[in-house]
Design a protein around this nucleic acid. Sequence first.
RNA 1: GGUCCCAUCGACUAAUGGUUAGGUCACCACCCUUUCAAGGUGGCAGUACGGGUUCGAAUCCCGUUGGGAUCACCA
Length: 484
Amino acid sequence: MSVRVRFAPSPTGFLHIGGLRTALYNYLFARHHGGACILRIEDTDQTRFVEGAEENIIDISRWAGMEFDESPEKGGPHGPYRQSERTKLYRQYADELLANDMAYRAFDTSEELEAMRERQKNAGIAAKYDRTVMRSEYTLGPDETKRLLDQGADCCIRLKVPVSGEIRFNDIVRGEVIVNARDVDDQILLKSDGFPTYHLANVVDDHLMEISHVIRGEEWLPSTPKHVLLYQAFGWDMPTFAHLPLLLNEDRSKMSKRFGDVFAKSFREKGFFADALVNFVALLGWNPTSDREIFSMQELIDLFTLEKVNKAGAIFDTKKLEWMNAQYLRNANPESLLPQLQVILHEHDIEISDERAKDILTLLRERITFLNEIPGFGAYMFSDDYVIDEEYKAKHWTAESSAIISSLLPLMKGLEEFNHIAINDTIGAFTKENGITSKLFIHPLRMIITGKPVGAGLYETMEMLGKEVCIRRIERFLSEEGTR
RNA sequence: GGUCCCAUCGACUAAUGGUUAGGUCACCACCCUUUCAAGGUGGCAGUACGGGUUCGAAUCCCGUUGGGAUCACCA
């Protein structure tokens, strides 16, 4: 049987980082086995629909390097891939269940249900729909049921869960899971608005779309028995389940907005590379080995197996993600980063050649984590109008600094080749001869030329800036300093 | 609270009965060095607890504790 998996988000908001990981594991598994990865939009809740959510899911997936084989926008042999466009189907299957006495109608209002739960709570028993007491077709009887139906009363369809026995299923990451049927609620399958709930739609679609493996978050584990029951009620083969460990906040609760930005797009906006984010997130809950951290998408695909997925949830550590991003920044081919860098520079009204952008990138990338730090971190690379760090200046600009820097100026002016080796040799020889220690002139020079205490090698930086710019900045500073 | 799931350094994890319990992030120190980084070297730090099974347990079993998920006409 061929591998067919699906990522089935509901368009209720921007794609969550946990969703991205679920999508990724599905994608890796499919590609590893040469199977298909399908995107199915589960938009059966009319009230929670969010405009643009579906676009965001597709956009982010593509950014992350995942291309679905079948999807709402692309189509495919099992479409439509949006559940709201498949409602007739679910109605049909619900009717089939009704006909086989595997499901039944219920007419309770939300107030009645609320009251039921209240009673159960007070009695200290588990909240669970009781079809022998509530307004189900069993208590109402066929005549009253028909009367209500004819009258057009609101009615939902519930799964008739066996009163006893065990429900078992196998999960690749969890092993065998066993639940008592008596603990399973008579799940609503079809809402009174005619839309299916997740459970019905999901099972029907997974069957119809010939899904072989259901790979989803652990939050679905408690409702899987209901899905098992549904497969049995329809007489369908079950897919293989794999429930992924949750992504956690630092307090070990399920990762949520409360602890910061959890939308995948926020990570893109912050400047994380898609490759780095994918790499990082892939390693949260799965690990192919222990002596490596950096993997390309293709390597992840080659190595991925569900058997190696962990059971325990994983805390999302942004620090490590940042480290990984910095790794990607340093190890990338500079050429490949130029398009992104130019976009960033352009946003800051900086227009320079690719050649120069590449040189600057190569010089600065070792000290930053994000590409988008370049305009700020390297402000002095693009303009004479940069801020001088007052603390740095206060610390290193001493009484004799002016004289020292002034004495270096003619040496620089005299350089034919203004490269870091020549600058180093010339200044080095002079200062050594005159007994000037390096910190007496290095810091003042750096302060004048870059404004800040951090940065690439000073002489390399000066070379990059060029003779003219360096001399201009020094003279400007000296004259401003002299007039104080 | 019911049900289910889970448990190795602070974090991510490796070790699928035999290792001085390994790696990475973070942190600390040192080296390198014109700053800051990067890089290098070293360090800190863990099998939740208690019982079994076994010659031998992080690993298998039971219990305890702790954490989490879930209990909607949401997904």
